[in-house]
Design a protein around this nucleic acid. Structure first.
Length: 432
RNA sequence: GGAGAGUUGCCGGAGCGGUUGAACGGGACGGUCUCGAAAACCGUUGUAUCCUCACGGGUACCCAGGGUUCGAAUCCCUGACUCUCCGCCA
């Protein structure tokens, strides 16, 4: 959430930011509620001070064996008034907290202003789209021929958007996940975590998925738990309500988890094959850093994610999201879009974001700074990367004539077999 | 699922319903001493919020939420979590 004091003193700036983000939030109601709340708090504090003082006098009198009945009676009415004010106060607080949770994070000043993804800014490209001397097939045809997927039976047992990876497809999925985890650990210095995929409401609120996105998540009603849409949620909330020491920072974590998204309202949009799923696998990076360093770290994380695609030899581009395309909690986000030659388009495989102190405030994650003062730290996360669209790009990029498959040789150790790679390494990658 | 015990400050650990923001010990930090260090001694050691230009002061917080009371860390209820034992189970 945003600092209430900041909202109070910069209401117009916040209003503009909400507009630029295409969000709706009742700022006026919030400001008004803040006003009444503060007034109630003031009254409460003063009355309570009186009560505390008189209570001590009563104690003193009783000790001396004096009569305190007059004071006791007087305090009876004070206690009643206090109770009444307190009821109003806690009601106001509850409402205010709820409203505050609906205010999105402010975009970083450098973020391009725009309504939707058409205003996103391409930052860079890497590599070239591969050239083919035949018409490249799409991932579904390749999956079909090489028996990598069984979407029909996935739909039977769970529903559409729940793919079954079969045979070599399943092994490749596992190999790619391990490849990414190892690279982030060994080359980029992230510590690996294995985290719960069911989390409670508080956790979902901490990273900003709730209250806005409740309809987009799978929920286990009986226990009020949610299936995570991304490992960002459990990982970022690990230090909720804690004060970290300066020496602990920066913290770098990487985790693989399955991710679950209802994708409500997105039917028919890019839903072919593996493009948009209800369950998918993702390797996620999360960092906890000192505020002054967070934007440098954002660039670093972007590079960490890019390294995956570079190691796999996949052409991609990086775009900076405009204000209207930024997520609720993000201040600045880069998307990495990998080229899919069969689909003939770029597919988003990673999103790298700086949340500044927005999530830290919600989850109450703090650190002790150089002066020994307790302050909110900054959180960032980035996919490194999500597998389904990576698979699409891999298969389509490394296909050979007649729906054959090659693979980059960096995956060999993780597959425990030689693959017919782009660099001419021998071996067979059949579905056996 | 059943039975019991517990949850206090950076840590350990006290705490009769009435100067308890919280004894005592440890740690950390500052100081004295020392050429320096150790030891010893002295001191400091919370978060949030409100009032004030400031000095300073008020209020809340002893797992969470309710209740009893003039007054609750202390009594009562509900919940969460931890531990022990039993049952069930991958």
């Amino acid at each position: 959430m945003i600092d209430l004091k900041y909202i109070r003193s910069n209401p117009e700036q916040v209003r503009q930011a909400i507009r630029n983000k295409n969000e709706k939030a009742d700022l006026d109601a919030l400001l008004e509620l803040d006003e009444t709340r503060r007034k109630l708090q003031f009254d409460f504090d003063n009355l309570k001070a009186e009560q505390n003082k008189v209570s001590q006098t009563i104690a003193q009198k009783k000790k001396n064996g004096e009569d305190a009945s007059e004071l006791l009676q007087e305090m009876g009415t004070v206690a009643e008034r206090l109770k009444a004010i307190n009821a109003e106060l806690s009601a106001a607080n509850t409402q205010l907290d709820a409203l505050l949770l609906t205010i999105p994070n402010l975009p970083h000043p450098g973020v391009p202003v725009g309504r939707d993804e058409t205003a996103n800014k391409q930052v860079k490209t890497w590599g070239e789209p591969p050239a083919f001397d035949f018409e490249p097939a799409d991932h579904l045809a390749l999956a079909d021929k090489n028996q990598l997927l069984d979407l029909t039976r996935g739909a039977k047992i769970s529903g559409s958007g729940f793919p079954i990876y079969t045979g070599f497809g399943a092994r490749l999925e596992r190999a790619v996940i391990n490849f990414m985890l190892e690279l982030h650990q060994q080359r980029h210095g992230y510590a690996e975590l294995a985290v719960p995929v069911l989390v409670n409401r508080r956790t979902m609120t901490g990273t900003g998925q709730l209250p806005k996105l409740e309809a987009d998540m799978y929920r286990v009603d009986e226990d009020d738990l949610f299936l995570i849409p991304t490992a960002e949620v459990p990982m970022t909330n690990i230090y909720a309500d804690e004060v970290l020491t300066l020496a602990q920072l920066p913290l770098k974590y990487v985790a693989y988890t399955p991710c679950f998204r209802r994708e409500a309202g997105s039917y028919g949009k890019d839903t072919k094959g593996l493009q948009r799923l209800h369950q998918f696998n993702k390797v996620e990076m999360v960092r906890f850093v000192e505020p002054a360093t967070s934007y440098a770290v954002l660039e670093e994380m972007l590079q960490d994610a890019e390294d995956i695609l570079q190691a796999l030899g996949l052409h991609y581009r990086v775009v900076e999201l405009c204000t209207g395309d930024l997520s609720f909690a993000s201040a600045k986000t880069y998307d990495i879009e990998v080229w899919a030659p069969g689909a003939r388009k770029y597919l988003e495989v990673s999103s790298v974001s700086n949340f500044e102190d927005f999530q830290a405030r919600r989850a109450n994650i703090r650190y002790r700074d150089k002066e020994g003062k307790v302050a909110f730290l900054h959180t960032l996360n980035g996919s490194g990367v999500a597998t389904p669209r990576l698979m699409i790009a891999l298969w389509e990029t490394y296909q050979t004539a007649g729906l054959g498959l090659r693979l980059p040789s960096v995956l060999e150790p993780f597959l425990n077999q030689a693959v017919p790679g782009p660099d001419g390494v021998s071996g067979l990658a059949t579905n056996s």
